[in-house]
């Protein structure tokens, strides 16, 4: 077999195939439910009710979506420039650390929130800057370096929680001292468990969208991603664009950790992120790297995770079904996107 580009793909093809990928994922979900000895339709409906069935469930889904929007944006921005930032997990923790460093009394002014947010973004950006400079200067593959940094960062967090940041009142539980009230993100509506981090995430998506569609940098990022040689030939500072992309991407991922600490948890613990950095890759790919699409897919992915937790308690199907579905959706989706652009011919 070989692949032949399609000059003008029909809109049925461009929309139908990604939709088909989602349907195929649903089919896999039902198959997994069958394997687990549960009623497939009941499992699907329990996931849906668990994610959206009540006010509480919807708020939980939106809370879970918040860090995923940030990490999804971080990945989308980077992948658009073919910068393979797989280190969103580490950058997330860098942001979370800054929230604790500045939010536990070191800075007691009304400015603590914006200052710690900015510091978080800088920390995340700095963490990705290293791998990117290694890539542009020495040609070291950033996939491996950013992946390895995830492990180093988790160990650093573990050290901080047992040492300098340890909560003296923690009863031996590894968590940091709690944030002071001024350093906490307030709730959007009093009485509803949803903090301003969610609003900030959506705002970030809009900002990224504006950068990508309305600025020179956005144009350069796309050009570098599509064809770095052509971009260089056209006189674009390819390495400079990659560095700027990295700063943006690392900063966004750091906000995920910052908002989890400042908005949701109020302290840092080593289980702050159940792999939000990696799930961000799925969120970004499902959104076809579109920043506004990231908001939608993050809520969808969060819903699957929240719903699966609820379903698992009721139907006894392991909650890891959510991870399987997300990975399946990712693989189906990349194939579907390819097939919108090429057709398979024999020979």
């Amino acid at each position: 077999m070989r692949l032949e580009p399609i000059a003008n793909p029909t809109s049925a093809r461009r929309i139908g195939l990604p939709a088909l990928a989602l349907v195929a994922t649903l089919a896999v979900a039902m198959l997994l439910a069958l394997v687990a000895g549960a009623n497939p339709l009941a499992v699907l409906s329990q996931i849906a009710t668990g994610a959206l069935g009540s006010k509480l469930a919807i708020l939980e889904t939106l809370n879970r979506a918040t860090p995923l929007i940030f990490t999804g944006l971080a990945v989308a921005v980077a992948f658009r420039a073919k910068l393979w930032n797989i280190g969103a997990e580490a950058q997330l923790y860098a942001g979370a650390i800054m929230a604790v460093v500045l939010g536990t009394g070191a800075l007691a002014s009304p400015w603590v929130l914006p200052v710690s947010a900015l510091a978080a973004m800088l920390a995340g950006a700095a963490l990705l800057l290293g791998p990117v400079l290694l890539k542009t200067r020495l040609g070291v593959d950033e996939v491996v370096t950013t992946l390895l940094l995830n492990f180093i960062m988790l160990l650093l967090v573990s050290y901080l929680l047992e040492g300098p940041m340890k909560d003296p009142m923690g009863m031996g539980w590894p968590k940091s001292t709690p944030l002071i009230p001024e350093a906490r993100l307030p709730r959007i509506v009093e009485g509803l468990r949803l903090h301003w981090g969610f609003a900030l995430a959506i705002l970030s998506a809009v900002v990224v969208w504006v950068i990508q569609t309305r600025t020179t940098l956005g144009f350069e990022i796309r050009a570098v991603g599509q064809n770095p040689e052509a971009a260089r030939f056209a006189g674009m500072p390819v390495n400079g664009v990659l560095v700027k992309t990295a700063l943006l991407s690392g900063g966004l991922a750091a906000l995920a950790g910052w908002s989890e600490v400042a908005g949701l948890k109020g302290h840092l613990s080593s289980d702050l992120s159940p792999g939000f950095g990696y799930t961000g890759i799925i969120v970004a790919m499902l959104a076809l790297l579109h920043p506004l699409g990231v908001v939608v897919t993050a809520i969808f992915v969060a819903g699957i995770f929240v719903g699966s937790d609820a379903m698992s308690r009721a139907a006894g199907v392991p909650t890891y079904i959510a991870d399987m579905l997300m990975a399946t959706a990712l693989l189906f989706m990349v194939l579907a996107i390819l097939l919108t652009k090429v057709r398979v011919v024999r020979g």
Partner: peptide, 9 residues
């Protein structure tokens, strides 16, 4: 991701 999730599941 798929292989890890399959093992856990």
């Amino acid at each position: 991701l798929f292989a890890t999730a399959s093992a856990s599941f």
